[in-house]
Design a protein around this nucleic acid. Structure first.
Lengths: 148, 148
DNA sequence: GAATAATTGGATGTCAATGTCCAATTTAGC
DNA sequence: GCTAAATTGGACATTGACATCCAATTATTC
């Protein structure tokens, strides 16, 4: 239901939330998130273009979050790489319907709305701070990324 | 968020719910739902394979629902053509996590669960019987498909 | 059994998502 | 300024989703 790119972007941003406000290199992120590095660099470029992360070239450079994890929502990340497209007009293109969705499309759109709202109301800080009776964010607890 | 194929399948099944228990030809469905007929026939084949619809060849044949609209849920249609894949194990493949999802994936899976539940609890009969103060299911009210 | 109506299956085409590779560019530190 | 570290951008390959077309098959009706 969600694209690979969304999955990868969320993993990357989680990693960055852990190391925030420090930056990480693409290679560091790729290793801890198990995302193919060549593709990850493209995803990160996308996140940079939309202002979710910023990049710094050269020695000591890397990728870092623009906002603090507490201010960054899952929705912002998702929309940056693969926007949730709400149904605002009849997909059959019947102009007579205008803003009114038929019962079918109203239900589909409601489903998307609930997802959108769940994502809008969750910050990265909440995700990484989860009270962790169960095992927390993949890979990070035992092997939490750090700046050397 | 949902594929074109899902959209087409739902439109087709809505049409069939209106004409149920009579059958409709692929061409009739294509016309009223504005789905490319050649592709629709493939989608219908998929729905037939999974037992959502049944097909009858030859003169007077066509496609009809297997269940009554009151017994058929949106979820069954969606899962027949493009199943909602819940996250049951850590996508990073960390065996240590087993059945426990990290906070990120737990949230993603919760979002899918809410969509799944909304679809599971809605029957086709409910969709087409919607109390229609607003404009109902695309194309159908003014031009409701009928057997001649 | 011939004609017609209909689905079925296979071959094919196009495009976007995913993924890889590498040369070019930028930057820090010596 | 030289070198090493890092991102950037472009070219390319692969795959699956979406879509089209047509010959083959099935079934009804006369």
């Amino acid at each position: 239901m969600f694209s690979q790119t969304v999955e990868y972007a969320l993993r990357a941003v989680c990693h960055l939330a852990y190391t925030a406000p420090d930056s990480s290199t693409t290679e560091e992120i790729a290793n801890s998130t198990k995302v193919p590095i060549a593709y990850l660099s493209k995803v990160l470029q996308g996140l940079a273009r939309t202002g979710v992360v910023k990049s710094q070239r050269g020695v000591g450079g890397g990728i870092s979050l623009v906002k603090s994890p507490a201010e960054l929502t899952i929705l912002e990340v998702v929309n940056a790489v693969d926007p949730i497209e709400r149904i605002s007009t009849c997909p059959l293109g019947l102009s007579a319907h205008g803003k009114n969705l038929c019962p079918l499309h109203r239900r589909l759109d409601n489903a998307m709305a609930s997802v959108e709202e769940a994502f809008r109301s969750t910050t990265l800080a909440e995700v990484i701070a989860e009270p962790t009776t169960s095992i927390p964010l993949c890979e990070f607890p035992s092997e939490r990324p750090q700046k050397k």
